[in-house]
Design a protein around this nucleic acid. Structure first.
Lengths: 124, 124
DNA sequence: AGAATAAGTTAGGCGGGCCTTACTTCGCCC
DNA sequence: GGGCGAAGTAAGGCCCGCCTAACTTATTCT
């Protein structure tokens, strides 16, 4: 499953804004700071990839695949953010923004090292 | 001075491939893994921004502004790479690639924290 | 129910960044 | 000096990601 960084952001936002009734275009747009039209377009692509399902003029829902991917992205995000805050002492808000960017460009290898580093820190 | 990440990469590559006779389109293209046409186009934009100078069919040279910016970018790059390698233990080659991406998305604040962290490490 | 408002959708457009193809200029060598 | 290959340039095209404007559907309120 290969989607662009930007689509990963949309997927993550769907996860974060969803409740039992799914996620709304407006909320996702708000969260990402883009227009509803852009969200709608992105949802089309995510649906094509089988990552979400939606009925016309209704909310969207993550499929199983979509949920798995969204959670993976979310976890990466949280891990990087935690690293920035707890290890480097970066401000919470800044860390949030930086994590959002870094999560898309960091290699699996470096990601592992970050996790390891934090594990080690925890034990001390 | 506001240029895109991609243009920063071109500028950095000019710095890295240049000798006394300036930098060549071909070398920059090779270094970045893009076509000569793309390099040429980017050089046009950098020239418009007064960051490089060039004569037709000749090599390009960094202006003072261009040199300053290129060095700033280069330093960021090296710092991030050093952090990945020496603190996280990331493989040299992987760190190089990751640094190349991260350098464009990291905030000034986080950048400072990284430097501080490494300074502290050095003292111990 | 009917109007006003909110949510979602569609169409069309724009800039960034890359490409290929074809052309021009340069430098070298017989 | 003519020819050739390499370097540089120009033109045109493609995809991505975003936008605005205009439209359709849903909802809410009196």
């Amino acid at each position: 499953m290969q989607i662009s960084p930007s689509l990963e952001d949309y997927l993550e936002a769907v996860l974060e804004t969803a409740d039992e009734d799914g996620a709304r275009t407006t909320d996702v747009a708000e969260k990402l700071g883009v227009s509803k039209a852009s969200v709608n377009q992105a949802m089309g692509v995510l649906a094509d990839h089988g990552l979400i399902e939606r009925e016309k003029y209704g909310p969207v829902f993550l499929t199983e695949n979509g949920m798995a991917l969204a959670q993976a992205v979310y976890k990466r995000h949280q891990t990087i953010k935690a690293f920035l805050v707890s290890i480097l002492g970066v401000d919470e808000k800044v860390a949030e923004e930086d994590a959002c960017q870094i999560e898309h460009v960091v290699s699996k290898d470096t990601m592992h090292r970050i996790i390891e580093f934090m594990e080690r820190r925890k034990d001390e």
